[in-house]
Design a protein around this nucleic acid. Sequence first.
DNA 1: ATGTGTGAACAAATTCACAGCG
DNA 2: CGCTGTGAATTTGTTCACACAT
Lengths: 257, 257
Amino acid sequence: MTDPHPAPPLRAPRDGTRGVPDATVARLPVYLRVLTGLGERGVTTVSSEELALAAGVGSATLRKDLSHLGSYGVRGVGYDVGHLVQHVGRCLGLAEEWRVVIVGIGSLGHALANYGGFAPLGTRVVALVDSDPSVVGEQVAGLEVQPAERIVRLVSELGVRIAVLAVPAASAQAACDAVVAAGITSVLSFAPVELQVPAGVELRRVDLSTELGILAFRERRRAAADGEEPVVVLPETLVAAGVGGRGARGVHAEVAR
Amino acid sequence: MTDPHPAPPLRAPRDGTRGVPDATVARLPVYLRVLTGLGERGVTTVSSEELALAAGVGSATLRKDLSHLGSYGVRGVGYDVGHLVQHVGRCLGLAEEWRVVIVGIGSLGHALANYGGFAPLGTRVVALVDSDPSVVGEQVAGLEVQPAERIVRLVSELGVRIAVLAVPAASAQAACDAVVAAGITSVLSFAPVELQVPAGVELRRVDLSTELGILAFRERRRAAADGEEPVVVLPETLVAAGVGGRGARGVHAEVAR
DNA sequence: ATGTGTGAACAAATTCACAGCG
DNA sequence: CGCTGTGAATTTGTTCACACAT
């Protein structure tokens, strides 16, 4: 699948999004956001240096990323903000509207439904569903909560392609199976469990506790590097989970090797 | 990852967390979650194959990750679930309690405050703050919302180290500056803007629209590969953002094939 | 001049494949 | 044997440095 050499003589690869690396794709939304912000503030031209700074990446990375989309910069000048917004936007699929259903209208589902930030990236929440009959019928963010079985019709009639799962961990796999069975091909889950999906279905997870766990790891590393003695508190929940180690202060970790 | 210089004599933490790659750190919380799940279901031993499957990674990756922590597996047998939970947990800092403040108690802040999933990863929400006086004093998830200025004291007196920003995009940078000035060293932001933080402060972003943007990109790529004609709708928001191609009707996406 | 676009060098992460241990 | 742990090979991503277009 890797044809390393012959590229240069060839023009833009078909529609411009063929071999874009995953790492680049993950940064495109960031670039787009920064660019639209600049545009709103009346900026018409940016250099890779400025744009990179604002996006929090290196300028070389930024230029390489944009070059993957068949870039539109002007040598000696920089990038035209308007053009670049259009170009990146089109690559991300913003000329189309990606319809989203939110599954599970608990407090997180509520928050997501009311969150206005999707639209600028081409996605729109068009339906809310919940399996709890006492929630169905409720009006949230201008939409009526529908029964879970309705997903099938949302996919076939409204063209919904993306499901956001905001359900409890215990029912996440079942909800995921249900939306996949209904024909959903992209899933964004907020539940703190690993979901299994069939091949061909895109799954992304956003997990608050995972993120906090990563931050905690770094805090801990920093504290250790500082020789600092952290406050040690053992909440019962952790003890119950079997964590804590002998003596409640396992500083003498085995330094194998 | 944020080390511009070619690794000087780095001071190693004297425990097992020396030189653990970022990619590995990001997976540890996942392993831990899967492991505790197995433990609760009475499983006492797992092979790298099984654990990897459940965690959604390759078995080689999993073994290499665990080996970075100075692994505890038994050749020919597998890993003892209980031991591994302890070990990974300790590496993630679960023997300590990482105190968290949530900044911004809007609908997302409410949802986060009520979300119970943190505890298993060693973090605990101990305070809520908001700059809006009409929200201050409200009782949410058993905590009273405090005025924003209180952050300084939360850091110095309660030992809060991590701030979760659930504020609107427009005030996110100001809120971020404020918590950093108060002495917070780790920030998890939900606002759809790129935040600038001084060196030494860990920043992670969770951005719903970015995630959906990535899914949309893949959906689009898939659709293009299928030769499918997507429903084309141009919401005004996109037009306003300058996306959609010159002529406002650029529906003639260059469909390859 | 100036700053993009890009090969080439480098670094990180993943995967392979197998030695070695229980 | 079976399965971990790990060097070596491979793939993937980042950074450098400079030719070249404007």
